[in-house]
Simulated scan of single mutants.
Amino acid sequence: MVSVSMTVNGKSVTREVEDRTLLVSFLREDLGLTGTHVGCDTSQCGACVVHLDGQAVKACTMLAAQADGCTVVTIEGLAKGDQLHPVQAAFREHHGLQCGFCTPGMIMTAVDMIRRHDGKLDEATIRHELEGNICRCTGYHNIVKAVQAAADEMSGATQAAAE
């Protein structure tokens, strides 16, 4: 057993876990944050993407102990109360989900993508960046539209704040 302490969605947590506990298992089983999905257990589907110290990571490939001392944001931590994050709102507006299983990972990947590209994204870049996330419902067209809309909105908001 090892003690892990981290900040998850703005709250400090400390737990004793087995050394081999994956971050995705820690989030789901120990903290009850089931929005982070387990899809493939091989890091190929992207359903488990969370942000670790501001960067997207696949939580099924990390041990909880590796996140000790870090800040983790899950899909549950994006919205501010009843106000959806712009990417969540864009997925809803542009029908960027079908069954919803891949949606949390897609959204977390998109938020990181938009941040890294300062909101300046084109369709080819979005499609390339989403290659590590699988949608089995073939909803990519609307997912790409949602990411583009969110990037445009967030880029406009950033630009307006700078002026």
Rank of each mutant, 00 (worst) to 15 (best):
A65L: 12
L121G: 08
V4G: 00
L78C: 04
H94V: 10
T109Y: 01
A67E: 02
R136W: 12
R20C: 08
S5W: 03
A90G: 03
F26H: 09
A161I: 04
I114K: 01
A157Q: 09
V2C: 00
Q159S: 15
Y140I: 10
M113F: 07
C60I: 11
M108I: 11
V49T: 15
T103V: 09
T21Y: 05
Y140W: 06
V111P: 02
L33G: 13
G119F: 11
M62L: 15
A56D: 06
M106F: 15
S5C: 10
L33N: 13
E129W: 03
G156S: 12
P86H: 08
A157V: 05
R127C: 11
E18I: 08
Q66A: 15
M154G: 00
S25Q: 15
F101K: 02
D82C: 00
C40Y: 11
A59C: 12
A65S: 14
T36P: 10
R127L: 13
V144I: 14
D68H: 15
I107M: 03
L84D: 09
D53T: 13
H37M: 10
L78V: 10
G139C: 08
T36Q: 09
Q44E: 15
E163M: 03
D152S: 08
C70W: 01
S5R: 14
E129H: 07
G39A: 12
I134R: 00
A59V: 15
P86S: 09
I114C: 03
Y140F: 14
A160S: 06
V50D: 05
E16R: 12
T42R: 07
A124L: 14
G119H: 05
F91T: 11
S155G: 00
S12D: 14
N133W: 01
G119Q: 08
Q44F: 09
G32N: 14
R136C: 11
L130S: 06
Y140H: 05
S5I: 02
H117E: 14
G39N: 10
Q83G: 00
H117K: 08
Q44K: 06
V38K: 13
A59L: 14
E153A: 14
H94W: 12
V144L: 02
A151Y: 01
G132K: 08
Q159P: 00
M62Y: 13
T158E: 10
K145I: 02
V4W: 00
D112Y: 02
G96T: 11
C135N: 06
A161C: 01
I114F: 05
G10P: 07
A160K: 05
E153N: 04
D53L: 07
G81V: 12
Q44I: 13
K80A: 14
H37D: 04
N142E: 08
F101A: 06
L27H: 12
G32H: 12
R28E: 12
A56N: 08
A146C: 08
M1H: 06
T103Y: 03
E16W: 06
A146Y: 07
G96L: 13
Q98F: 09
V50C: 07
E153H: 03
I114H: 01
V144W: 04
A151M: 04
M6T: 07
A124P: 02
A162Y: 00
A161E: 13
V144P: 01
M154K: 00
I114Y: 01
A56V: 10
S5H: 04
T34C: 05
H141F: 09
L97E: 05
V13D: 02
A89L: 08
G132M: 11
A151C: 03
I75C: 01
E123H: 07
Q55R: 15
